[in-house]
Design a protein around this nucleic acid. Structure first.
Lengths: 197, 197
DNA sequence: CGCGATTGGTAACACTGTTGCGATACGCTC
DNA sequence: GAGCGTATCGCAACAGTGTTACCAATCGCG
């Protein structure tokens, strides 16, 4: 047929790696296809033949981020006490976010203009929150939490966790505010609010 | 002296107005200085003499957004019941965000690459949350809320509100999920978690 | 009336994502 | 083995961006 392809799976992974590094080092603004291609020893064409466009490349990063994130969430041990478990899941969420803030920014805020996760990516993102749903459903079934839709509680928990973490990451919190300590207190208070009286 | 200046306060306001419209219509990505200048009947130089740079223009938008936002928050009536008041403040927060999602994105997420709010803007942003702090401090002083630093509770409330709203705005919530109803429930549960037992 | 100073638009610069074209480099056929 | 066909990839052009240097325009004052 033709010349042997060098735009293969290995290059795909190398590009994803480099893209993550570039974003982690200098933020999403610093991710340029030309720079990326040069660092990976190829040309911009590689990105287009392997991913389709820059937003598609970011989509791949997005999915990679959620895969790691989902793994961390799934590995959190369950104690049977739903409040403690929710606090532990929240801690894992924060740990994951702080481990790679820029990747987190791609995953949860619109930090790359023009990027929207596609159907598959959104499905993966939702599935990474399943542990949360499980803990809550079990607590409702056991009569520990009030009998509202599990989704309501899940979104509430996700909301406070995501809100606190993103406020922390974007530097919107007062400097003298120690996040670590208050974080757990806030999560516990929030979870306790769903306890059956 | 020299020719009369046309890069005056009136043009400054017109540019801010147009910039807000452009962002609200097509998102932060669509805000181009050339387009903005053309629509305002001037040249890109105007932005540089009036604002300094594009990030500085966005900073002015940021402050304008927080001025409106602060006004809405300050106009929320107090009932004396801190849980009800926090829910009402949260509702105002969401109303404000939904009224102009793109402005909200500028204010609370890093949706414009390269933009960081300056000192003055951050101070203004913090001051818009004072009503929250007041309600909480009063509730602690009255012995209704537990005796933790008011800031801890304030950040928790801000977190859950910001988290839920930003998840709603970025479309991260499941489609069949009715935000309106669950929002109030979640806020009430969160606030109740701080009640003195 | 013309000089001087100040103001603002034009155009260049360096960069971006994207795309078409042409050079490349292989397997197959003669 | 030589040449052809074709899949493949890199270069360069295109349209757009933010930013800045320069030069023309425009007024008050002498």
């Amino acid at each position: 047929m033709a010349r042997p392809r060098t735009h293969d799976e290995a290059l795909r992974l190398r590009l994803l790696d480099r893209a993550g590094e570039l974003i982690s080092a200098d933020g999403p603004k610093a991710l340029s296809l030309r720079k990326l291609a040069a660092e990976a020893g190829t040309s911009t064409t590689a990105v287009y033949s392997l991913f389709g466009s820059k937003p598609d490349l970011v989509n791949a990063l997005y999915m990679e981020g959620f895969r790691r994130f989902g793994a961390r969430m799934a590995s959190v041990a369950r104690s049977g006490d739903p409040v403690a478990d929710l606090v532990a899941l929240g801690a894992a969420y924060r740990t994951s976010a702080l481990a790679d803030p820029h990747l987190y920014a791609i995953m949860f805020t619109k930090s790359v203009p023009g990027f929207e996760p596609n159907e598959e990516a959104e499905k993966l993102a939702r599935s990474s929150l399943e542990p949360l749903q499980e803990v809550i459903s079990a607590a409702i079934a056991a009569g520990i939490f009030v009998d509202v839709p599990a989704e309501t509680i899940a979104v509430s928990c996700w909301g406070i966790v995501h809100g606190l973490v993103s406020l922390e990451l974007t530097g919107n919190l007062p400097d003298e505010f120690s996040v670590g300590g208050a974080y757990e207190t806030a999560l516990r208070a929030n979870a306790s609010g769903w306890l059956r009286p």
